[in-house]
Protein backbone atom coordinates (compact mmCIF):
# COMPACT_ATOMS: atom_id res chain seq x y z
CA UNK A 1 0.00 0.00 0.00
CA UNK A 2 3.02 2.24 0.34
CA UNK A 3 3.61 4.64 -2.53
CA UNK A 4 6.93 3.75 -4.21
CA UNK A 5 9.91 5.79 -3.04
CA UNK A 6 10.96 7.22 -6.36
CA UNK A 7 7.43 8.29 -7.30
CA UNK A 8 7.08 10.18 -4.04
CA UNK A 9 10.49 11.81 -4.35
CA UNK A 10 9.67 12.86 -7.88
CA UNK A 11 6.28 14.26 -6.82
CA UNK A 12 7.85 16.35 -4.04
CA UNK A 13 10.55 17.73 -6.35
CA UNK A 14 7.95 18.62 -8.98
CA UNK A 15 5.80 20.32 -6.38
CA UNK A 16 8.71 22.42 -5.12
CA UNK A 17 9.89 23.33 -8.61
CA UNK A 18 6.37 24.28 -9.67
CA UNK A 19 5.85 26.55 -6.66
CA UNK A 20 9.29 28.07 -7.13
CA UNK A 21 8.87 28.70 -10.86
CA UNK A 22 5.70 30.57 -10.07
CA UNK A 23 6.73 32.66 -7.07
CA UNK A 24 10.53 32.72 -7.54
CA UNK A 25 10.62 33.48 -3.82
CA UNK A 26 13.56 31.31 -2.94
CA UNK A 27 15.94 31.60 -5.85
CA UNK A 28 15.43 35.32 -6.42
CA UNK A 29 16.10 36.10 -2.76
CA UNK A 30 19.17 33.91 -2.72
CA UNK A 31 20.60 35.25 -6.00
CA UNK A 32 20.06 38.85 -5.00
CA UNK A 33 21.64 38.26 -1.62
CA UNK A 34 24.58 36.45 -3.22
CA UNK A 35 25.22 39.25 -5.72
CA UNK A 36 25.10 41.87 -3.00
CA UNK A 37 27.43 39.84 -0.83
CA UNK A 38 29.98 39.44 -3.64
CA UNK A 39 29.86 43.16 -4.33
CA UNK A 40 30.25 44.03 -0.66
CA UNK A 41 33.26 41.77 -0.43
CA UNK A 42 34.90 43.33 -3.47
CA UNK A 43 34.40 46.82 -2.03
CA UNK A 44 35.40 45.91 1.50
CA UNK A 45 38.57 44.12 0.52
CA UNK A 46 40.83 46.04 -1.80
CA UNK A 47 42.70 43.24 -3.41
CA UNK A 48 45.59 42.95 -5.80
CA UNK A 49 45.85 40.19 -8.36
CA UNK A 50 47.47 37.51 -6.16
CA UNK A 51 45.30 38.31 -3.17
CA UNK A 52 42.22 38.00 -5.38
CA UNK A 53 43.34 34.61 -6.58
CA UNK A 54 43.76 33.41 -3.02
CA UNK A 55 40.52 34.78 -1.69
CA UNK A 56 38.04 34.37 -4.53
CA UNK A 57 37.06 30.83 -3.51
CA UNK A 58 36.53 31.93 0.05
CA UNK A 59 34.19 34.72 -1.03
CA UNK A 60 32.27 32.41 -3.35
CA UNK A 61 31.71 29.78 -0.68
CA UNK A 62 31.01 32.04 2.26
CA UNK A 63 28.40 33.71 0.06
CA UNK A 64 26.92 30.37 -1.02
CA UNK A 65 26.72 29.14 2.56
CA UNK A 66 24.82 32.20 3.75
CA UNK A 67 22.58 32.18 0.68
CA UNK A 68 21.79 28.52 1.23
CA UNK A 69 20.84 29.23 4.84
CA UNK A 70 18.35 31.82 3.60
CA UNK A 71 16.90 29.35 1.12
CA UNK A 72 16.78 26.40 3.49
CA UNK A 73 14.97 28.42 6.13
CA UNK A 74 12.35 29.44 3.58
CA UNK A 75 12.05 26.01 2.01
CA UNK A 76 11.28 24.24 5.27
CA UNK A 77 9.15 27.08 6.63
CA UNK A 78 6.72 26.70 3.69
CA UNK A 79 6.18 23.11 4.76
CA UNK A 80 5.10 24.27 8.20
CA UNK A 81 3.03 27.37 7.40
CA UNK A 82 -0.09 25.77 5.94
CA UNK A 83 0.74 22.25 7.09
CA UNK A 84 2.16 20.82 3.87
CA UNK A 85 4.50 18.68 5.94
CA UNK A 86 1.53 17.19 7.80
CA UNK A 87 -0.14 16.37 4.48
CA UNK A 88 2.93 14.33 3.62
CA UNK A 89 3.14 12.84 7.09
CA UNK A 90 -0.39 11.41 6.96
CA UNK A 91 0.02 9.93 3.49
CA UNK A 92 1.30 6.40 2.92
CA UNK A 93 4.80 7.29 1.76
CA UNK A 94 8.26 6.26 2.92
CA UNK A 95 9.55 8.98 5.28
CA UNK A 96 12.88 8.91 3.50
CA UNK A 97 11.17 10.25 0.39
CA UNK A 98 10.39 13.52 2.15
CA UNK A 99 14.06 14.01 2.89
CA UNK A 100 15.21 13.08 -0.60
CA UNK A 101 12.59 15.25 -2.26
CA UNK A 102 13.27 18.34 -0.18
CA UNK A 103 17.02 17.79 -0.40
CA UNK A 104 17.10 17.52 -4.19
CA UNK A 105 14.94 20.63 -4.48
CA UNK A 106 17.21 22.63 -2.19
CA UNK A 107 20.24 21.29 -4.03
CA UNK A 108 18.88 22.52 -7.36
CA UNK A 109 17.97 25.96 -6.00
CA UNK A 110 21.37 26.58 -4.40
CA UNK A 111 23.09 25.19 -7.49
CA UNK A 112 21.32 27.82 -9.59
CA UNK A 113 22.70 30.49 -7.26
CA UNK A 114 26.21 29.04 -7.54
CA UNK A 115 26.03 28.79 -11.31
CA UNK A 116 24.88 32.38 -11.63
CA UNK A 117 27.71 33.56 -9.38
CA UNK A 118 30.50 31.96 -11.40
CA UNK A 119 30.28 34.24 -14.46
CA UNK A 120 29.70 37.32 -12.31
CA UNK A 121 32.76 36.63 -10.18
CA UNK A 122 34.81 35.70 -13.23
CA UNK A 123 34.21 39.24 -14.49
CA UNK A 124 34.44 41.10 -11.17
CA UNK A 125 37.61 39.37 -9.98
CA UNK A 126 39.13 38.76 -13.40
CA UNK A 127 39.81 35.11 -12.64
CA UNK A 128 38.39 32.36 -14.83
CA UNK A 129 36.11 30.36 -12.57
CA UNK A 130 34.26 28.49 -15.29
CA UNK A 131 36.37 25.37 -15.44
CA UNK A 132 35.37 21.71 -15.35
CA UNK A 133 37.03 20.86 -12.00
CA UNK A 134 35.55 23.98 -10.37
CA UNK A 135 32.10 23.04 -11.65
CA UNK A 136 32.53 19.56 -10.18
CA UNK A 137 33.51 21.12 -6.86
CA UNK A 138 30.48 23.42 -7.03
CA UNK A 139 28.09 20.54 -7.64
CA UNK A 140 29.57 18.36 -4.90
CA UNK A 141 29.89 21.23 -2.43
CA UNK A 142 26.33 22.38 -2.92
CA UNK A 143 25.17 18.78 -2.61
CA UNK A 144 26.87 18.61 0.79
CA UNK A 145 25.29 21.91 1.89
CA UNK A 146 21.84 20.74 0.82
CA UNK A 147 22.11 17.30 2.38
CA UNK A 148 23.14 18.37 5.88
CA UNK A 149 21.23 21.68 5.62
CA UNK A 150 17.89 20.02 4.85
CA UNK A 151 18.25 17.86 7.95
CA UNK A 152 19.14 20.79 10.21
CA UNK A 153 16.57 23.17 8.74
CA UNK A 154 13.84 20.58 9.28
CA UNK A 155 14.74 20.75 12.96
CA UNK A 156 15.14 24.48 13.38
CA UNK A 157 11.94 25.18 11.42
CA UNK A 158 10.09 23.64 14.38
CA UNK A 159 11.71 25.82 17.03
CA UNK A 160 10.63 29.18 18.32
CA UNK A 161 13.54 31.19 16.93
CA UNK A 162 13.94 29.29 13.68
CA UNK A 163 15.50 31.98 11.48
CA UNK A 164 18.30 32.64 13.92
CA UNK A 165 18.90 29.09 15.02
CA UNK A 166 19.72 27.58 11.61
CA UNK A 167 22.97 29.52 11.04
CA UNK A 168 24.10 28.75 14.58
CA UNK A 169 23.40 25.05 14.14
CA UNK A 170 24.65 24.80 10.58
CA UNK A 171 27.80 26.93 10.35
CA UNK A 172 30.01 24.90 12.70
CA UNK A 173 28.81 21.59 11.31
CA UNK A 174 29.64 22.39 7.68
CA UNK A 175 33.22 23.46 8.43
CA UNK A 176 34.64 20.07 7.38
CA UNK A 177 32.88 20.45 4.03
CA UNK A 178 34.08 24.03 3.58
CA UNK A 179 37.64 23.09 4.41
CA UNK A 180 37.74 20.41 1.72
CA UNK A 181 35.92 22.57 -0.82
CA UNK A 182 38.36 25.45 -0.37
CA UNK A 183 41.37 23.15 -0.49
CA UNK A 184 40.13 21.59 -3.73
CA UNK A 185 39.21 24.91 -5.36
CA UNK A 186 42.53 26.52 -4.40
CA UNK A 187 44.39 23.61 -5.90
CA UNK A 188 42.52 24.14 -9.17
CA UNK A 189 43.36 27.85 -9.29
CA UNK A 190 47.02 27.10 -8.58
CA UNK A 191 46.99 24.60 -11.45
CA UNK A 192 47.67 21.74 -9.09
CA UNK A 193 45.99 18.36 -9.18
CA UNK A 194 42.68 18.75 -7.35
CA UNK A 195 41.06 15.39 -8.00
CA UNK A 196 42.33 13.89 -4.77
CA UNK A 197 40.55 16.66 -2.84
CA UNK A 198 37.46 16.22 -4.98
CA UNK A 199 37.46 12.58 -3.98
CA UNK A 200 37.57 13.57 -0.28
CA UNK A 201 34.74 16.00 -1.00
CA UNK A 202 32.68 13.13 -2.39
CA UNK A 203 33.37 11.22 0.81
CA UNK A 204 32.18 14.12 2.98
CA UNK A 205 29.02 14.31 0.84
CA UNK A 206 28.36 10.63 1.40
CA UNK A 207 28.74 11.03 5.17
CA UNK A 208 26.34 14.01 5.24
CA UNK A 209 23.80 12.29 3.02
CA UNK A 210 23.92 9.16 5.17
CA UNK A 211 23.34 11.24 8.32
CA UNK A 212 20.40 12.95 6.62
CA UNK A 213 18.84 9.72 5.39
CA UNK A 214 19.22 8.00 8.74
CA UNK A 215 18.16 10.84 11.01
CA UNK A 216 15.54 12.80 9.04
CA UNK A 217 12.62 10.62 9.97
CA UNK A 218 13.24 11.29 13.64
CA UNK A 219 13.20 15.06 13.29
CA UNK A 220 9.91 15.26 11.38
CA UNK A 221 7.84 12.85 13.44
CA UNK A 222 5.82 14.11 16.37
Amino acid sequence: MTTPLWRTVFAIIRKDLRAELRSRELVSTMVLFALLSVLVFSFALELDRTARQEIVNGILWVTLVFASILGLNRSLATERELGGMDAMMISPIPRMAIYLGKMVGNFLFVLVVGLSLLPVMTILYNIVLIQIPLLAILVLGVFGLASIGTLLAAMTAQTRSRETLLPIAMLPVIIPLLLVVIAAASAVLKNEDAWGWIGVLGLVDIIYAMLGLLLFEYVIED
Binding site: L151, L152, T156, Q158, T159, S161, A169, P176, L215, Y218
Partner: peptide, 29 residues
Amino acid sequence: AYLMLRSGIENPEKRRVFSSVYGIVAITT
Protein backbone atom coordinates in the same frame (compact mmCIF):
# COMPACT_ATOMS: atom_id res chain seq x y z
CA ALA B 1 25.29 25.32 19.42
CA TYR B 2 24.02 22.00 20.79
CA LEU B 3 23.27 23.69 24.09
CA MET B 4 21.56 26.61 22.33
CA LEU B 5 19.44 24.31 20.21
CA ARG B 6 18.47 22.45 23.35
CA SER B 7 17.35 25.57 25.14
CA GLY B 8 15.42 26.77 22.07
CA ILE B 9 12.90 23.91 22.10
CA GLU B 10 10.09 23.89 24.62
CA ASN B 11 8.46 20.55 23.86
CA PRO B 12 10.54 18.14 25.96
CA GLU B 13 10.14 15.17 23.63
CA LYS B 14 11.18 17.21 20.60
CA ARG B 15 14.07 18.66 22.57
CA ARG B 16 15.44 15.22 23.28
CA VAL B 17 15.01 14.00 19.71
CA PHE B 18 16.61 17.07 18.14
CA SER B 19 19.47 17.06 20.65
CA SER B 20 20.15 13.42 19.89
CA VAL B 21 20.26 14.11 16.16
CA TYR B 22 22.49 17.15 16.56
CA GLY B 23 24.80 15.35 18.97
CA ILE B 24 25.31 12.65 16.36
CA VAL B 25 25.92 15.15 13.55
CA ALA B 26 28.31 17.20 15.73
CA ILE B 27 30.79 14.37 16.16
CA THR B 28 31.96 15.07 12.58
CA THR B 29 33.68 18.24 13.81
